[in-house]
Design a protein around this nucleic acid. Structure first.
Length: 498
RNA sequence: GCAUGUGUAGCUCAGAUGGUAGAGCAGCUGACUCUUAAUCAGCGGGUCUAGGGUUCGAGUCCCUACACAUGUACCA
């Protein structure tokens, strides 16, 4: 018998003992009068009047001493010591207490008092088993020294933490913070958009064609229809159809799926916000983005700045705006504004920047930007004036056909938002997608595909508008000072263990 | 993808130069009616990630595979 089975068997034996006593180790009902935080918030009152309280929670520590025992019970709001004495609960009930193991859910009835050692506790008059844990939890012990909690044998194997997130949340409760903040940021966004009159919508995730981004999709198959379907890689083309349909302000927050490599910054499924607003443009999206960050900082984070890896980032001041070509010149000294392919290619080769056959001058300019500029943009910066070649859904600048009205927002060397004045000319849009198609044929597997249904919709007329996408996971990483996306996704993609 | 590192008990970790696997916690038995990393005494617990190889002998050396981390390339 292996060790784990031995541990499980010991717990099952205790469960059997309960059954033999006629006690259900998994009762249907429980009751509680107070959450544990209530007891802590009103210590004086509860100790003075000795009122009866009933708490529920998980046993997170046990210290037995013969005919008396201590333990700690935790619910979501906190944890408190319990004191169980045979004389207080009676012989039969004490047998139930003796069946308690670390990890069991229990209900404790009693009253609050302070022990001789000065610890605020619940003196039990009756204990109840609510749910027996038959599998042993990793044992983590804590000690408080000078107000600081020292944790022993912390559950910190990174792989186990991700594979068994429930144990991570249970044993390292501080890891809940990123997920709570995530929820608050998303609900804050919804409030912000609702205040501005946006409608939240849901569009298909399973689609006959994928588009709106530069990525490879996941394929699947519908049995009854006997057709190939793709998981969406962006939300863009459906949201634009809604603007065509007469909605003027829409957004969606949802999962998109990209079939690419995984690393500390990429999970195959991730959460994207996309938003479209009719009768505005890139400047409108800049205003909206600055206001959104300001709102989230003030209303959710209650601060102006966040600290990421010891760098203070001001989220509320106006962000810097600079064109991609200017920034390239600033950081590399190279002037690419003439879009001279041969000259740009030579520069790339000189600086060991990969030049693929499908890449034109615009793509190479982006590569130069990624290499020389991107890592240097620490404080929030709107990079504007993108090459048209790499922006097939953005409207060209009226005075420069090589460039489009687009920005990406960079903070700490990473991209946090991508926005355009959206292309609404169906002829231009068709041509752009055809150019993408050519790039596919030249080997760019991530280039956009031609979506005839979308083009037809465009032909019915789409108002001028601005649109933006914000990667939520990355944003949460920034706000929680995490460098791994797995720390902000509850159940990150993992390869099977065996 | 590539490079480097890690993988030993349920958990956290030791195991120089190859010689039949150790600790703490948790578990079991016993003692203990105010403890708090409770304490004390005793006991049990391992296909050392998997598969090959070298060797009289491999947790340790070599090869392959797998998982995870970090760096790097591409992408949000």
């Amino acid at each position: 018998m292996d060790n784990q089975n031995q541990l499980i068997q010991a717990r099952q034996q205790k469960m059997q003992r309960l059954l033999d006593m006629g006690v259900n180790p998994y009762p249907n009902r429980s009751s509680r009068s107070h959450i544990i935080k209530d007891l802590w918030d009103n210590q004086q009152k509860f100790t003075d009047d000795e009122q009866k309280v009933t708490i529920t929670g998980r046993i997170i520590a046990l210290r037995r001493q013969g005919k008396v025992g201590f333990g700690n019970v935790a619910d979501e709001s906190g944890n408190i010591q319990i004191f169980v004495r045979k004389d207080n609960v009676g012989e039969e009930n004490y047998e139930i207490f003796k069946s308690f193991d670390l990890g069991d859910f229990c209900q404790i009835e009693g009253s609050c008092f302070v022990t001789q050692m000065g610890e605020y506790s619940v003196r039990a008059t009756c204990v109840t088993m609510l749910a027996k844990a038959v599998r042993p939890l990793p044992v983590v012990k804590e000690k408080v020294v000078d107000g600081k909690t020292i944790r022993f044998d912390e559950f910190h194997d990174i792989e186990l933490r991700y594979r068994k997130r429930y144990l991570d949340l249970l044993l390292n409760p501080e890891h809940k913070h990123a997920f709570e903040l995530r929820a608050h940021i998303i609900s804050g966004m919804r409030r912000f958009f609702e205040n501005r009159g946006f409608l939240e919508v849901e569009t298909p995730i399973l689609t006959p064609l994928y588009g709106g981004a530069h990525a490879r999709p996941f394929n699947t198959h519908h049995n009854t229809l006997d057709m190939e379907l793709y998981l969406r890689i962006s939300i863009e083309l459906y949201l634009k159809r809604l603007i065509i349909g007469g909605f003027e302000k829409v957004y969606e927050i949802g999962k998109v799926f990209r079939n690419e490599g995984m690393d500390r910054a990429h999970n195959p499924e991730f959460t994207l916000l996309e938003l479209y607003q009719a009768y505005t443009d890139l400047d409108g999206m800049i205003e909206l983005t600055e206001s959104l960050f300001k709102f989230l900082a003030k209303e959710v984070l209650n601060t102006d700045t966040v600290t990421f890896h010891n760098t203070e980032i001001n989220l509320t001041a106006p962000f810097r705006k600079a064109s991609m070509l200017e920034l390239i010149k600033e950081y590399s000294g190279f002037d690419a504004s003439d879009f001279d392919y041969d000259k740009i290619k030579t520069f790339c080769l000189e600086h060991h920047i990969e030049v693929t056959s499908a890449a034109g001058a615009g793509k190479l300019i982006e590569e130069i930007f990624n290499h020389f500029v991107e890592p240097k943009l620490l404080q929030p910066t709107f990079v504007i004036d993108y090459p048209r070649e790499i922006s097939p859904l953005a409207k060209a600048k009226p005075d420069d056909p090589n460039l489009v009205e687009r920005f990406e927002l960079f903070i700490m060397g990473n991209e946090y938002a991508n926005a355009f004045t959206e292309l609404n000319d169906p002829h231009d849009q068709r041509k752009r997608l055809e150019d993408q198609q050519k790039m596919r044929e030249m080997g760019d597997a991530e280039a956009n595909v031609i979506d005839e249904d979308f083009l037809e919709a465009l032909e019915y007329g789409m108002p001028p508008m601005g649109g933006i996408g914000i990667g939520i996971d990355r944003l949460i990483m920034l706000l929680t000072d995490n460098t791994s996306i797995k720390e902000v996704i509850l159940f990150p993609q993992m390869k099977p263990e065996n």
